[in-house]
Design a protein around this nucleic acid. Structure first.
Lengths: 128, 128
DNA sequence: CGGAATCCTCATTGATACTG
DNA sequence: CAGTATCAATGAGGATTCCG
């Protein structure tokens, strides 16, 4: 996670980098954030449509997830003054910068899913 | 998370990709895995040294985390027949492939940490 | 439509003590 | 040294109900 060039990284460098990555992971590594972000890639979306897009999410968790993403500046919330009220969510510019790194992880997961599955069943059979 | 070329992705594509990414995130998005992986990048390491490297981790969680990483084929556990026993952990080839995507997220976290901090304090002051 | 509030459950984690 | 076993606490998440 550290070690630029060929020099040994200091422990402090490591700690700071691990902090950074852990912060990001706790932001998007929860149960729903990536699903929500993934849905919003397609474009702005309203609350109930988002709810259908992210199948399985409860109303509580959708609201909570959106609030946290909004708080971190990754998602923008727009209230349109209609009756009944219309609320639209979309990725911010900052939110869009997250797409690439997430996609990288997604590709990794894709590429190695079978190796992981095999490693698992092998481990499980060894353990009884 | 999908949308290759310019064609609209199907919902099924999206779901599958979100599944993949969620699986990866639940594997490494827990409280300790990234710390452990980050420490093992430097090379093989024994249990107690790892424990000191990942400061704050309990014995229980270190063992648990290592088991899960081993199960998924990301970490290799070697028992050296000495007295007292010596156990060495290291990343597998598969484990090493994870370094790059993790580093990408790490860089993202670094690059935008201030924007996120500002977004947060702005949001919090708006909310009271 | 787009939530907020409440209650409840279960999974994750930590602390502690013990062991080959 | 490198764990295992047990228990207690914390907190994320789901279900339900109510609201402007």
């Amino acid at each position: 996670m550290s070690g630029r060039h060929h020099s040994r990284p200091t422990g402090a460098d490591e700690d700071r980098e691990c902090q950074d990555i852990r912060e990001t992971l706790s932001r998007i590594g929860d149960k729903w954030s990536v699903h929500v972000i993934g849905s919003l890639i397609e474009g702005p979306m309203r609350y109930n449509r988002l709810r259908r897009a992210v199948s399985g999410i409860s109303q509580r968790m959708l609201t909570l997830t959106l609030r946290l993403l909004e708080r971190d500046g990754l998602v923008k919330r727009d209230v349109l003054h209609t009756a009944p009220p219309t609320v639209e969510y979309q990725l911010t510019a900052l939110g869009e910068t997250l797409i690439e790194p997430i996609r990288a992880l997604s590709h990794w997961a894709r590429e190695y899913r079978h190796e992981i599955r095999d490693a698992r069943s092998s481990f499980d059979s060894r353990s009884g």
